Amino acid sequence: MVQPTQSVVRRFLPRRAAALCLALSVLTGCSVLPNEEEPLDPPKLTSKTEEHETSPVTRGNMELYLTSTASAVSDVNNSVSFPESGGILKKFYVAEGDTIKAGAPIAELETGDLPIRVKLQKLTVEQSKLRYQDAIQQNAGEDGVRLAKIDLEAQQLQLDSLQEAYNKALLFAPSSGLVTYLNDLKPGEPVEANQAIAIVSDPSKVNFVYDATDATKIKTVKDGTEVAITLDDDKSYEGSVIQTPSTAPKSDKDEVNRRNAKALIIALNPPSPAVPIGTYADIKLFIDKRDNVILIPRGALKTMFGRNYVEVMENDRVKEVDVVTGLKTSDKVEIVKGLEEGQKVVID
C-alpha cells in the first residue's frame, strides 16, 4: 500500500479542521450570526364608540326674506325734450334739485336774432293797433278802417309766427315739481330732437325702488308681498310690493324694460311719512313665510346625486333617511316629508 506523503497530509488537514468546526457548531448551537430577538406581542385593539353631534327635529315658524337698500323715487316723472327739432343749447334756466312751477322755462336753444325780431314785431303790432284805433276815432271811412284792420291782422300773424318759432327753442316745465334730472350738456353743444333734457318729478307721490343685482333672487316675489322699511329715523314702516318684473308694463324703450326686469317698486302703507325723493331706506322683503312646520338645522341636510337625506340616531345607531325639503334659509330647512318632531339628526 502506498502511504500518503507528508505534504499531502498537510494539504488536507485544514479542510478537515473546518469541517469538524462546522459540525461542532451545528451540534452546540454556536454561530457567527447574531441571536434572533424574541417575537413581540401583537398590539391591543381597543373599541371606541363613535360620537356624533346631534340636534332635535323641531316644529316652528320659518321666514325667508331678503335684506337690502332701496331708494325713494317719484311715481310721477315727466321727461321733457325738444320734440320737433334739435339745435344748439344756449342756456339752462334751472339746476338739478330745483323746485319749479308748471310753465317755467327749463332750457333754451340758440335762435340768432329771433328774440330781437320778436320784440320789434311786437312794437309793430302795437303801432298797427294805434292806427286802427285812430282810424275808427277819426271816421276814416269804411275803407280806411278796413285797411287799418287788415294791417293789424297781418302784423299779428307775423308776430305769432315769430313767437311760435321762438317758443320751439324754449323748453317749459309740463308740471310743478322737483327737477330730479338735468342733462349735462354745455352751452354751445348740439341738442338732438327728443333727447331728454330734464325730468320733473312730483315729490308728493313717492315710492321705493329696489334694483336687484341678480334678477333670479326676486323671481318668486309677487305684488302685495310684505316689506319692512326702515328710514333714517330708525323707525320701521310697513310697505308692500306694487310692481314686479312680471307685472311691469312693457315700454317702447329697451332701457326701461331692462331696468324693470330686475326691479321692484315698493309703496309705503298709509299712513306714511313724507319721504324726500332720493332718500335711501333699509328694506326687509318677506319672500316666503311658513307656520308650524318641521325644521332641522341646515348642516343636517345631505345631498348626493339629487338625493336629499339626513342621518338619524336610533338606538345608538346612525340611519340614513330620505327627506322631502321645502323652504330653505341660511340656517334652517323645512322638512315636508320624512321626519317627525323629536327625532335626532346628525350634524356635520
Rank of each mutant, 00 (worst) to 15 (best):
A140P: 00
N183D: 11
S81K: 03
S204Y: 07
K250M: 13
A261H: 08
E126A: 11
T124Y: 01
E334T: 05
N35C: 01
T124L: 04
E311S: 13
S272Y: 07
L45S: 13
S161H: 06
V333Y: 06
V8L: 12
G112P: 03
V209M: 09
A72C: 02
Q343A: 14
L301V: 10
L130V: 13
N61L: 10
A95I: 04
I218T: 11
I136E: 05
D211W: 01
A281S: 11
A23L: 15
P273I: 09
A70S: 08
A95D: 10
I116G: 02
V191T: 10
Q137I: 12
D98F: 01
D214A: 13
V241L: 06
E153N: 11
G60P: 03
T49L: 09
D331V: 15
D234F: 04
E311C: 04
S71G: 02
N207M: 06
Q156P: 00
G224M: 09
L178R: 05
G342W: 05
K262P: 01
L123G: 12
D322M: 08
A104M: 13
K319M: 13
D113I: 11
S161R: 12
V336P: 04
K186D: 05
A140R: 05
R298Q: 15
L159Q: 07
T325M: 10
L285M: 07
P4N: 08
G338A: 10
K235I: 00
G112Q: 10
A140W: 01
A267T: 14
T213C: 10
R259T: 05
D160Y: 03
P43S: 03
D291F: 08
A135N: 01
A196C: 00
E53L: 13
E126P: 00
S176E: 01
T247D: 10
S55F: 15
R16T: 15
E314D: 13
A193N: 07
V118Q: 11
V191G: 06
F12E: 14
K205E: 14
T111Y: 00
T230K: 11
D348S: 13
S330D: 15
G278V: 04
V200I: 15
L159C: 02
K217C: 05
D254P: 07
V191E: 06
R258E: 15
S201R: 04
A212S: 13
S201M: 03
D143M: 03
E38N: 06
M62V: 12
Y210L: 09
A70I: 01
D160V: 04
I287E: 15
E189D: 10
K48H: 04
R258P: 02
E314A: 10
V209F: 11
G278H: 09
F92C: 06
